[in-house]
Every structure is written in C-alpha cells, then in structure tokens.
Simulated assay, not measured.
Amino acid sequence: MSFIARPSLLRAVGTAPALRATLLGSRRFVSTEKLNELENLKLLNTQRLARPRSPDLTIYRPQITMVASGLHRITGVAIGGAFYAAALVYLLHPIYPAIDSAHLIDFFHGLPTLAKGSLKALVAFPLTYHSFNGIRHLMWDVGKGLTIKGVYVSGYAVFAATAVATLYLAFGL
C-alpha cells in the first residue's frame, strides 16, 4: 500500500487490527506504568508546578477602564451589603428597642462635625459613584461614547462628578 493511513481513519472504516499493525508498524507510541496513589499525587503536583501561570494583576499598569470596572462592582456590593445590614438592624428592633430612628438620630447628632462628615462621605461615595457610572453604562447600552476617547472622557467625568457630589453631600448640606 502506498498511502499512510491515520489511526482514526482506520478505526472509522473498521480495518482489522492485523492490517492496522502492518500499515502503522508495530511500534508503541506511548508507554505507561502503574503508579500507586501517593506516586500519582506526587507526579500530578510536579506537573502542576511546571504549568505556565497566568499573569497577576500587579504586572498591568492600572488604566481607568480597569479601575472604574472594579470600583463599580465593589460599590455595588457595598451598597447591597449596607441595605441588608440596615434591614437586619431594624429587624432587631423588637429585641433591642434602643435601635430605632429616634435613637440613631440622637446618636448621630452627638458626634463631632468631622465624624459626621466622614460618615456621610462613607455613605455618599458608593451611592454617587455607582449612580454616575450606572448612567455611563446606560449611555453605552444605547451606543454612545464607545470609542476609546469616549470611554476615557466619560470615565474621568464620572470620577469628577463623584468627587464633587460626595463632597457636597458630606460637607455641603
């Protein structure tokens, strides 16, 4: 026979094992050996150490797109967590009657001005950033600002609007 048959082709046509051995030769291409469980685990760990690793975030220069995306996710989780925590606190009102709006307002009123402003900024930042960046994402959904320049301009605009709104809400009211 003057052609070279692939093993998958020979299996597909159902060629006899004797003919396969004649066409492919009697060489074994793979050798195997039996390993016990401990040796198998050691071999697997050795192979895992030799695998290439994907790069870590620390090798990349931070870009506004990367920072804005991560911050949007973080502020979303923070807002959701704060709402759940506040709801749980109010659920404890029957057990601890001191937890109600009047007591919380009195507590907050008694804090120093800098502490009040800092707490308000801590609440205002995630709300304003997530809101402004959400508007940015809605603009993208309708196809506006999807160029590289548009993405960067809208990113800086979101950060500027967040800074102004946070400072106004925390210290201006």
Results as ranks from 00 to 15, higher is better:
129 Y>E: 05
6 R>N: 11
162 T>I: 03
72 H>Y: 15
77 V>R: 12
26 S>E: 14
41 L>N: 08
36 N>P: 03
32 T>W: 08
93 H>C: 01
157 A>I: 14
78 A>Y: 05
159 F>C: 00
8 S>M: 06
107 F>A: 14
52 P>I: 11
13 V>L: 13
82 A>V: 02
65 T>K: 01
30 V>K: 08
129 Y>A: 02
116 K>Y: 06
160 A>S: 10
108 F>R: 11
154 S>G: 10
124 A>C: 02
109 H>C: 03
135 I>G: 07
91 L>T: 05
9 L>A: 12
85 A>P: 01
73 R>P: 01
134 G>K: 12
18 A>H: 04
161 A>S: 08
107 F>E: 00
4 I>E: 06
115 A>E: 04
162 T>V: 07
36 N>Y: 04
46 T>L: 09
141 D>K: 15
53 R>T: 15
2 S>F: 03
113 T>Y: 09
136 R>Q: 10
54 S>P: 00
16 A>N: 13
84 Y>C: 09
119 L>P: 03
94 P>R: 01
8 S>R: 10
33 E>R: 13
136 R>I: 01
25 G>N: 04
47 Q>M: 11
36 N>M: 07
11 R>E: 11
67 V>E: 13
165 A>S: 15
96 Y>F: 13
72 H>M: 12
65 T>G: 14
123 V>H: 04
141 D>L: 07
65 T>F: 06
170 A>E: 15
29 F>I: 02
139 M>Y: 02
24 L>P: 02
144 K>N: 05
2 S>T: 03
51 R>F: 13
53 R>A: 15
16 A>D: 14
148 I>F: 10
125 F>C: 13
